[in-house]
Design a protein around this nucleic acid. Structure first.
Length: 610
DNA sequence: GTAGGGTTAG
């Protein structure tokens, strides 16, 4: 790439108008500034382009400002230079100056400034440009039409309008649809979460015989990943391999991501290993994919990232922090935090959210709060993460205070944050407070509770022993209760040994999910606690007939950077006798300090896994 | 002088 050719030549021979930039390059030995050579407008425009291509739009702007006359080509070079450097505000401002100066935009100007409207997510700006283009008769042509389509497809319309109707209309009216037009439509649907519509557009594209290129392949795979269809994903994979784009990096990266999202980790890993070359995005997709199912393996792969001379970035660290949170390995999380600080990545919002989450889930609530408090930018997820942290650590009151603080700052809550604060109340036994939030959600904020929220409220009432209220609430629901809601009632019935409701809830779950063995275990425990031995034996008989065991309970702690796991009923540890002796001591101690220790359930569950 | 793609958090 050519370097900027200093000294800059002059347009105006008047030394009084010499800019600071040019002054810096004058010296007594250089030619007299009053008689410099003059760049032609074409040469100046080329210089502007070259400066922008080198990532110096500011320098280009000084050149531009010193041009005695600026034609539409110069203006467009400046606008497009800003756009390609991500300076969309400046591109827009320059477009406005241009029209104010009476210079009419052409097709090139229109497509460039539309790119910036998209970059700003600003649909209305796009519509203004559209109107100007129509007035000047430059609203036709592949480039302009595709750029317009992209603004409509990429920026939402308004509260009830996702903007795709208008995009679709523009798309159908196009004289000629290129691969770019098709890609834009598939991407528009996919980014809105309508991967199914995206796949349909892609299918139509193939049917109409449009040629596949890496862009269309990768977005089509992404559409497929978003709906989690492995069958469709595999078909696409075959199609992509046939078209010869199988190992194009963005395409291959989408494939890795697709296999992960379709829960086919082995295939993702196989493809990952087969790839002739990988970049950081490949690694990040694979690590994030593993993290969703097996945090331990995600950490392992993370350690191998250096073998390809790659440096982890914010995406990598965010996934790895989730893995640490999931495994509750505080030391590991602290080391990752250190690596993040050393690399100066601390300003990233998503990663700070992951840090808040990690410290909270590793039980270090003070560190979590410190990160949260020091964030100079917070979104709803930051607040939610902090509230979850308080909730799981038993700080119900703090979660409530944080919720109120958030509301006072004018932040709009969603159903997730309501669920979290209600759940925090539930774990802290703050029943009436939890119900207050549930009421505020429905009446004050008009957010219809989904089944997860109902599950939380049932749990809240159930833990407190208000089982009939919980049952009444289920009956009031406008939709059919699913197994998680009945599960919450069943758990509460077990906790308070309510045979009648327990039997009813269990029956509902058995209808909805007959293969769920946990239901039988819980129900039999309720019968045992109620001394209904006939029913107990019958439930156990059914359970044995199902031929599968309840998954063994497991917990783990981290000691000196190693994770030690404990599986219920496992006696393989060489120190097993000592372990049980100490456990006995702890139980004894808990009983002495009147800790609320529920041992009867433990015995029934324990025999199940042996 | 102009348009389209892949990885992260509750």
């Amino acid at each position: 790439m050519t370097k900027f050719p200093f000294p800059i030549l002059l347009f105006h021979p008047n030394p009084r108008t010499i800019s600071p930039l040019r002054k810096a390059h004058y010296s007594p030995n250089k030619p007299n500034p009053a008689t410099p050579s003059v760049l032609s407008p074409v040469a100046a425009t080329n210089l502007i382009k070259s400066l922008c291509a080198q990532g110096s739009p500011a320098l280009a702007r000084r050149m531009f400002d010193e041009m005695p006359e600026r034609d539409v080509v110069a203006w467009t070079a400046m606008i497009s230079g800003y756009a390609s450097n991500g300076r969309h505000e400046d591109a827009w401002a320059t477009f406005r100056q241009m029209t104010a100066d009476g210079v009419g935009p052409n097709e090139y100007t229109v497509s460039s400034v539309l790119t910036s409207c998209k970059g700003l997510g600003w649909r209305r700006g796009g519509a203004v440009v559209h109107a100007v283009a129509v007035r000047r008769g430059v609203d036709r042509g592949t480039y302009v039409e595709n750029a317009l389509l992209d603004v409509y497809a990429s920026c939402g319309g308004g509260s009830d309008d996702d903007g795709m109707d208008e995009a679709r209309k523009a798309f159908e009216e196009m004289a000629e649809r290129t691969a770019v037009s098709w890609t834009t439509m598939v991407a528009g649907y996919t980014h809105r979460g309508d991967g199914y519509a995206g796949v349909l557009v892609f299918r139509r594209m193939v049917q109409e015989g449009a040629e596949l290129n890496p862009f269309t392949c990768s977005i089509a795979i992404r559409a497929c990943a978003s709906i989690g269809s492995l069958t469709l994903g595999k078909q696409l994979h075959v199609m992509v391999e046939k078209s010869g784009h199988g190992f194009n990096l963005p395409v291959a990266n989408s494939l890795v991501d697709m296999y992960c999202r379709c829960m086919s980790l082995a295939e993702a890993r196989r493809y990952f290993n087969e790839m002739p070359q990988r970049d950081l995005i490949t690694w990040n997709a694979m690590i994030a994919g593993l993290q969703r199912y097996n945090s331990q393996e995600a950490l392992q792969l993370f350690l191998e990232i250096g073998s390809e001379d790659l440096q982890p970035n914010c995406f990598t660290f965010t996934s790895i922090l989730s893995a640490c949170a999931d495994l509750a390995v505080l030391h590991c999380g602290q080391q990752v935090h250190g690596a993040i600080v050393r690399r100066g990545f601390t300003g990233n919002l998503q990663m700070a959210n992951a840090l808040v989450d990690m410290y909270a889930k590793c039980g270090s609530i003070a560190d979590s709060r410190e990160i949260f408090s020091e964030m100079n930018q917070k979104d709803l997820i930051s607040w939610t993460s902090m509230m979850i942290g308080y909730g799981i650590n038993g700080y119900g009151k703090e979660a409530m205070d944080l919720f109120d603080e958030m509301i006072n700052l004018g932040i709009q809550p969603d159903h997730v944050v309501f669920m979290v604060v209600i759940s925090a109340c539930s774990h802290a036994g703050l029943v009436d407070e939890g119900l207050k939030y549930f009421d505020a959600m429905r009446t004050g904020y008009d957010i219809p509770p989904n089944s997860e929220v109902y599950g939380c409220v049932i749990d809240l009432l159930g833990r407190a022993g208000r089982l009939m209220e919980a049952y009444e609430l289920i009956k009031e629901m406008t939709f059919e209760a699913d197994e998680s809601i009945w599960g919450a009632l069943l758990g509460a019935s077990r906790m308070h040994n309510n045979v009648g409701l327990g039997r009813l809830a269990a029956q509902k779950i058995m209808d909805l999910k007959p293969e769920e063995t946990k239901t039988y275990v819980l129900l039999s425990n309720i019968y045992a606690a109620g001394s209904e031995w006939g029913e107990f034996a019958e439930t156990r008989r059914l359970l044995r007939g199902m031929g599968s065991k309840k998954e063994a309970g497991m917990s783990w702690i981290e000691v000196r950077n190693k994770v030690c796991s404990f599986v219920a009923g496992d006696r393989s540890n060489p120190y097993v006798d000592l372990v049980y002796e100490i456990l006995e001591m702890l139980v004894q101690h808990m009983t002495e300090v009147e800790c609320d220790y529920n041992s009867d359930g433990l015995l029934h569950d324990l025999e199940e896994v042996t």
